[in-house]
Design a protein around this nucleic acid. Structure first.
Length: 876
RNA sequence: GGAGGCAUAGCUCAGCCGGUUAGAGCGCUCGCUUCACAUGCGAGAGGUCAUGGGUUCGAGUCCCUUUGCCUCCACCA
């Protein structure tokens, strides 16, 4: 036992507590056949990352769940790690190199990878340290990295598996190309944003000089690659023109007019120029009509040397030049303003350039089917459920996944090509292949790497040792729950689901708990460019990790965004301080090393134990249903209202030295000690630091160990149910409140104490509480008899008691009468309302019995109170 | 174009399977150095639960309509 400071200072204890847990290996998971496993794999943060509020929320939720389950006796594993984040990390390194005046080509692949690994060493650990500050109880001995040996092995295996099954193929297709990152990206990595642009109406002349065909485009520069013009086959306006040829302005290419259903008659002129190399739809049309695919741009989106006049210009310069030339040549009809959606790279925001190139793809259809089924059948559940709709929509309309990236930082594609282009042999192999099996010439490996999400998709099992059949994999897989934001469902969650099903035959997790975004106080997304990000580490420094965690979890419901403000953190910080001080108070009267529930309990003891028991049941129930915010709110209310505002105040007279009764003093000590320990246990998953610290100060219940996080979570106990006593206490507390109210209304100063004359049919409860009633209702003395004689008294009436308060000159009898009349009228209308319900045959016959009985009980209480009011009134 | 979400006190939000007189934090008003806490204590003001309809004995809660805000997906050149 130790003395506590007046105010809780988290900075003094958090690091110490975390170190203690770590040294005692509290985070370490153990395969234990006697226990049930409970597993969470962390959504691996990027090694480029700094802990932001999104991480703080995500990891707070995971830590609450894992700490709860650990205390419930599960063999828990929270597996941490980081993601190599190929495109994001590579971009950062390239940028850093650019500042030094070094390019990737200057240092070559090996040199670059050396730098990348050095980067990982420097920054990869940073976010891990930040997660520890939050209190995350991860098993750090099992920490993994998406590019470590084991994960790489898993990636190789999966690639081989899918290739052999024919589900990975290489093909020349149109893909999304980022001219800044200089790599292909998948459809999921393209973000569309509305931009104000123009609609250029052009006219292409017929070859035979018989006029023009008018069409419109948002991208005139792609004209260089046009290989046809298309109309709808049903469009009568252009019926006769199909099959004729046009001369492409500025280029002079002879291109056909074709008919294709893709063209909408009603849109624009109903004529579309077809550029198979630079538009995904045009590419499809081109494929159907065997059109030539002409790439007019370099990989950094400049016009190729094939068009000398525009060669070297970037897309937008070329656009200007071409529009000017079209105008000069009389091909430009008009220009209109036009807002349209433009695809941008989700990493750098550069406008994506659709481009035909040879890439690797995963054929999705066969993989998607069981993944849809797993959610459909409830094998995997999303919380909240509505996100399943998003998932289904994406999965059901899925297109093949472009997985190759023209990057160096990542898992290199295990494909080898013969150096002799005439041979053209390709081998996919786990082991390096240097000699062409077909022609004997040297072979070289595919320079590309895999989409970073390809490895994250395997995270729930690659981290447990897959493809080896390890003890961990056997025991901890499938994982129990995945906690992540809705923004990442398509990128990650869905890919883990089909991956888990395909490679392990099992769904990788049972539940997916989705949370929203943490926004700033004005509701804006926190972003670097806005500079409105709030640094969780600063909040931890100023208010403590527990306060941050509690803020993030309260008032937050699954799937919904939340706003973060300092006022909220202050409230949480105050709550921590409240708990601290409640304990500090108790400790000044608690001199024992152990507490136990006494055999004889006072009414207020039974009341608080009954309340505690209810909270235990509720909190467990809420946590099982992933209602973390509600659970936190209930604990807050219990601690502040029930425990501090009432129970502690109620037992003060028993604890003080002025109490001559040794036995009630001892029982009060035991009960407050017991309730405190249970409360600290209940709160531990939410506020691990302060509860652990307090646990080391308070006396324990017999049999408890030294470390709170390893204790059993409190369980509901039928022995602690005291409904009758709790109800009586409710009346008593109501009485105290009403006396306070009355005094306040009548302007009686706090310091002026009065006698109370109490008439009740249940005097025992009140007799047991004489001391605290005096304290809490500002009474000098309490008499269990009616006020005798002709004395001016104000009255308080509950359904269980009548109280007369002699206040002499402060009482105005007429006002008292008016007040009681008002009260009577209120009671009558309440009773009438309930009678209305009870006299309704529909209600009595159809409503559940409990509801009807509750109404009856309520009516009885009101009737008693009414009788009391009438009785008091008659005596005025 | 398709799908989803939100709308509850001045502000930010809870409200689970429909069941008292709809809650919390912050803010506001009044009063308190009451021997844990002013990061506090006590009392209070403040809500037609966006709109219109429906289902039901009973609707903030379920269904439909309208309005406003937001998000995701699609990408008609």
């Amino acid at each position: 036992m130790q003395n506590l400071e007046k105010n809780y200072d988290p900075s003094l204890i958090e690091d110490k507590i975390y170190k203690m847990w770590n040294e005692n290996e509290c985070f370490k998971a153990h395969v234990d056949p006697e226990k049930e496993p409970y597993t969470i794999v962390i959504p691996p943060p990027n090694i480029t990352g700094q802990l932001h509020m999104g991480h703080a929320l995500d990891n707070t939720l995971q830590d609450i769940l894992i700490r709860y389950k650990r205390m419930c006796g599960y063999a828990t594993l929270w597996l941490p790690g980081t993601d190599h984040a190929s495109i994001a990390t590579e971009a950062k390194i390239v940028e850093a190199m650019r500042k030094e005046g070094v390019s990737k080509d200057d240092i070559g692949r090996d040199g670059f990878l050396e730098r990348a690994w050095a980067w990982k060493e420097t920054y990869g650990g940073r976010i891990i340290e930040q997660l520890k500050k939050l209190g995350s109880s991860c098993d750090w001995s099992r920490e993994r990295f998406t590019l470590d040996e084991g994960c790489s092995k898993a990636v190789q295996d999966v690639f081989m598996h899918l290739y052999e099954k024919g589900l990975i193929y290489r093909g020349e297709r149109i893909i999304n190309w980022c001219p800044h990152c200089l790599t292909s990206i998948s459809d999921a990595e393209v973000e569309f944003e509305e931009q104000n642009g123009h609609f250029w109406h052009l006219r292409y002349p017929f070859e035979d000089g018989s006029g023009y065909l008018e069409l419109a485009t948002t991208r005139p520069e792609t004209l260089l690659g046009d290989t046809a013009v298309a109309v709808n086959p049903k469009d009568e306006r252009y019926e006769d023109m199909v099959g004729k040829y046009l001369i492409l302005p500025l280029v002079g290419r002879r291109i056909p007019v074709i008919a294709d259903d893709y063209v909408e008659q009603e849109f624009g002129t109903g004529v579309v120029k077809i550029t198979p190399a630079h538009d995904p739809n045009d590419f499809e049309v081109g494929a159907r009509h065997n059109l030539e695919v002409i790439n007019v741009m370099t990989d950094d989106a400049k016009i190729t040397a094939d068009y000398p006049k525009y060669a070297g210009m970037d897309r937008y310069e070329a656009r200007k030049a071409i529009v000017a030339d079209l105008e000069e040549g009389g091909f430009l009809v008009r220009v209109e303003d036009y807002a349209h959606n433009v695809g941008t790279c989700y990493r750098c925001g550069t406008t994506v350039e659709p481009r035909v190139s040879k890439q690797w793809f995963v054929a999705m259809e066969t993989l998607a089917k069981p993944a849809i089924e797993a959610v459909r059948t409830g094998d995997i559940k999303f919380i909240p459920e509505r996100f399943e709709k998003n998932y289904f929509h994406w999965m059901e309309n899925i297109r093949d996944w472009c997985i190759s990236r023209q990057l160096w930082w990542g898992h290199r594609i295990p494909a080898y090509y013969c150096d002799d282009p005439d041979c053209g042999e390709m081998v996919v192999s786990r082991e390096p292949v240097t000699i062409c099996p077909k022609c004997g010439k040297p072979m070289h490996q595919d320079p590309d790497t895999l989409d970073t999400w390809f490895s994250s998709a395997l995270w729930p099992f690659s981290t447990l040792g897959w493809p080896e059949d390890t003890e961990d994999l056997k025991y901890f897989y499938p994982t129990s729950i995945l906690v992540t934001g809705y923004d990442i469902i398509t990128f990650w969650v869905s890919r883990m689901i089909f991956s888990g099903l395909e490679y392990t035959g099992k769904s990788p997790f049972k539940n997916v708990l989705i949370h929203g975004l943490v926004r700033d106080a004005q509701g804006r997304k926190m972003s670097k460019s806005l500079g409105n990000g709030i640094d969780p580490l600063e909040i931890i420094r100023d208010y403590g990790a527990d306060a941050l965690r509690f803020t993030l979890v309260t008032g937050n419901s699954p799937g919904n965004d939340m706003r973060f403000s300092n006022e909220g953190v202050e409230a949480s910080r105050n709550f921590a301080n409240k708990l601290w001080n409640a304990t500090r108070f108790a400790l000044t009267y608690l001199t024992r090393d152990e507490v136990e529930l006494p055999a004889v309990l006072q009414p207020e003891d039974k009341w608080i134990l009954h309340k505690l028991n209810g909270v235990i049941a509720d909190v467990r129930d809420n946590l099982e249903k992933f209602e973390l915010g509600i659970a936190a709110q209930k604990l807050y209310d219990f601690v502040w209202d029930d425990l501090c505002d009432w129970y502690i105040e109620l037992i003060k007279p028993r604890l003080f030295e002025t109490n001559p009764d040794e036995s009630t003093r001892a029982s009060a000590q035991n009960v407050i000690g017991y309730v405190l320990v249970r409360t600290i246990e209940l709160l531990h998953p939410f506020m691990p630091f302060i509860t652990e610290e307090l646990y080391h100060s308070v006396p324990h219940i017999k049999g408890m160990g030294d470390i709170l996080m390893m204790q059993e979570y409190p369980a509901y106990s039928a022995d602690l149910e005291f409904p009758a006593e709790a109800e009586q206490m409710g009346y008593l507390m109501d009485l105290i409140k009403q006396v306070r109210q009355l005094r306040q209304k009548m302007g009686v100063p706090f310091s002026r104490k009065t006698n109370l004359y109490l008439v009740t049919e249940h005097p025992d409860t009140y007799r047991a509480g004489v001391e605290y009633i005096k304290r809490l209702a500002s009474a000098t003395d309490l008499f269990f008899e009616p006020l005798a004689g002709d004395v001016n008294a104000a009255t308080v009436v509950t359904s269980d008691a009548k109280v007369f308060i002699p206040l002499g000159e402060l009482v105005d009898i007429e006002k008292e009468k008016a007040r009681l009349e008002k009260e009577k009228a209120k009671l009558l209308s309440e009773i009438a309302r309930i009678d209305g319900k009870l006299n309704n045959p529909g209600f009595v016959s159809k409503a559940p019995e409990k509801v009807v009985n509750d109404e009856r009980a309520k009516r009885e209480a009101l009737a008693r109170q009414l009788a009391n009011v009438e009785d008091v009134y008659s005596k005025l």
